[in-house]
Design a binder for these strands. Structure first.
Lengths: 211, 211
DNA sequence: CTGAGACTGGGTTGCGCAATCCAGAATTCG
DNA sequence: CGAATTCTGGATTGCGCAACCCAGTCTCAG
């Protein structure tokens, strides 16, 4: 929780916490559908069923709300899909994770996805604090993938000379790039292709890859 | 030029063409630095050295200007880098193309890139016409990569069973995802990793790959 | 119990922005 | 040549938006 935005009130009651959460969730859904720029405070207010004052009671500004959304999404650690995979420490788990991400796009018709990549695309160039939050989120995701890959290498499933950082980064990049293209082209093929490539790259470092 | 926005005046003189181009270029640079949402009409006006009326003389709206920027960028077919590579029909050319994209990020410190991917991230969810323009641009890029891969297969360098569409899509996705992560994390490693993975995937279908 | 703080609601403010208005100069074409 | 069109400039408009204001209710802690 190192990127957690401090709640605005000094003390947050369960009731206040619930209201705050409701606001963040409403914002997340609206941003998924309309983007950050296309989501106004009034939209969030209406969707969360609160007044304008409540919004500013819990968040200093629209930016603070956006950052709460970023935090929420970064904390959806295995966000690409349901069901939640506990660790990415086998080829099967990696493949399942990729398939879940693909399935998610299929279900939504490649529309409306509020993930770190789409937030980065909208915010990085003009909001340094949000960019930093998103970057931290990506780092945490990378570390999670890294942990899994490290476990695989320690079990002798990946070659000792594999650059695990590179593998993790290529997987994350493939995911974000695949989602971006799939959402733009309104078809799931780019994500399928990019995940196939990234997984194949990881597989090329499997100990029995030559077999 | 199938996605070309019709110029607003019925006839465009060389002088008018120059002014219009100057506006589009100014907009492109500003968008690279500040994003679409962070670039206002007044910013473009000042940077291009024209009046507000001139902007609306040449473009019906801000959206029309953005679409002209999209067209311009999609037409920068081998936009990822300089020098302009004439065709992506060999492993060497693909590697050079990837290296050029990486070099471009190195030169800019992973900041400020107005490519189809970043435009897609900002616009796709809330501007259907822009999304369509960008998607068409991606399709054209994919076709260009496809042409190169097809030539390689016809020359016997890629196996007949290679799914060239998948290879082209994985390469484009890796490029966009790599740029996105590199720009967010302000380091070039993600792009290096993603391009390595995509090129390795293509290479895994090389006819002499088993050697 | 009471004062302070958290929570809530609805209305208002002011500014930034895209777009328009008004007018004139430059160029083209019949 | 003159009418029509293109190009140009600067000021103004009006609306959408984020943020604030004012007031009241609820809850907690000393």
């Amino acid at each position: 929780m190192t990127v957690t935005e401090e709640p605005k009130p000094r003390r947050l009651t369960p009731k206040g916490r619930a209201t705050r959460d409701r606001i963040v969730e409403a914002a997340t859904e609206l941003i998924a559908r309309n983007g950050v720029a296309g989501t106004g405070i009034e939209d969030v207010r209406a969707a969360a069923g609160v007044s304008g004052s409540q919004l500013y009671h819990y968040f200093d500004s629209k930016q603070a709300l956006i950052r709460a959304v970023i935090t929420r999404q970064a904390d959806s650690v295995l966000q690409p899909g349901e069901p939640r995979v506990t660790a990415l420490d086998s080829f099967e788990a990696l493949r399942a994770w990729a398939d879940a991400a693909i399935e998610r796009q299929v279900e939504t018709g490649c529309r409306g996805d509020c993930n770190l990549g789409s937030l980065a695309g909208e915010l990085s160039v003009r909001d340094e604090e949000s960019r930093s939050d998103i970057a931290n989120g990506f780092l945490r995701w990378k570390d999670l993938v890294l942990d899994g890959l490290r476990a695989m290498r320690d079990r002798g499933e990946l070659r000792a000379d594999a650059d695990l950082e590179e593998l993790a980064l290529s997987l994350l990049s493939a995911l974000q790039g695949g989602v971006l293209l799939s959402q733009t082209m309104l078809q799931v093929r780019p994500l399928e292709a990019s995940m196939n490539a990234a997984l194949a790259y990881i597989h090329s470092f499997a100990v029995d890859a030559v077999g």
